[in-house]
Amino acid sequence: MIHASTTAITRPRSLDEALAALEKSPGAVLLAGGTDLMVAWNAGERHLPERVVDLWSVPELATIGVAGDALHVGALATHSRIVGSPEVRAHAPALAEASRTVGAAQIQNRGTIGGNIANASPAGDTLPVLLAMDATIVVASRARGERPVPADAFWTAYRRTALAPEELIVRVEIARDRPQVLFRKVGTRRAQAIAKVSMALSLRRSAGGAVEDARIAWGSVAPTPVRARRAEDALRGKPLDAASIGAACAALPQDISPIDDIRSTREYRLHVAMAILRRALSGWVG
């Protein structure tokens, strides 16, 4: 572990100050709740950087509310606040459900949705839900102002994001007319466990029962959170029945690329992904 001899910490009090600080030091490490960074620094897995911008005291980033036809969740909204938010519960209950599975109560009190997104772990609990909801991640820089990034385009490679060095995440926007999302997390134990596999699934069906659109998103089965587009395609335009479900499950292994790691195995993840997808889709039948 090599430490910078000193770490300069800037603590902006407004979004303007935060963007200005970042413009002055592009690439500075952004600190929100610190639940990932503090652990990594203490464990020597990441170097202590020269410059840190601590966003904890930027009030504009912490709001949760409805604006027009979208739910807005500020990047600094903690998992505890998401869980307790009537707006989130009304318009994106699966997001509240996912936030409820993040770490322990203490982690939920500090950890933020913006941090979960920026940390870009393939196991980030809220990320498949954001994918399944077609969420928009709104980022901003001082020079260019706000820029919407579809969740689908946000995680570019293992632990890489579309965020430019002078940008920060402002909020997440979720359309209110989205179909409900089913969230399923498979961990090693019943609480405080990192996902071995997680799935977020939403379907829009016609009056006749055919699948008009499907979103099947996954955590911990690829270098990034991913959508299973082939499996989605296998359902689109079909009635939800044994044949289409079978086709979707059969297509899934081409969409995901799970690995053996300390938590689980490739084989297990493949099996579980297919099994929980089959179970979830079968539950929708009828």
């Binding site: 134990r189 019943r190 938590r263």
Partner: peptide
């Protein structure tokens, strides 16, 4: 030892 923390050497929680 690869899992030398309580994050990855898991013991039961109350829910377990």
């Amino acid at each position: 030892v690869q899992n030398d923390r309580m994050t990855n050497y898991l013991i039961p929680t109350t829910l377990d």
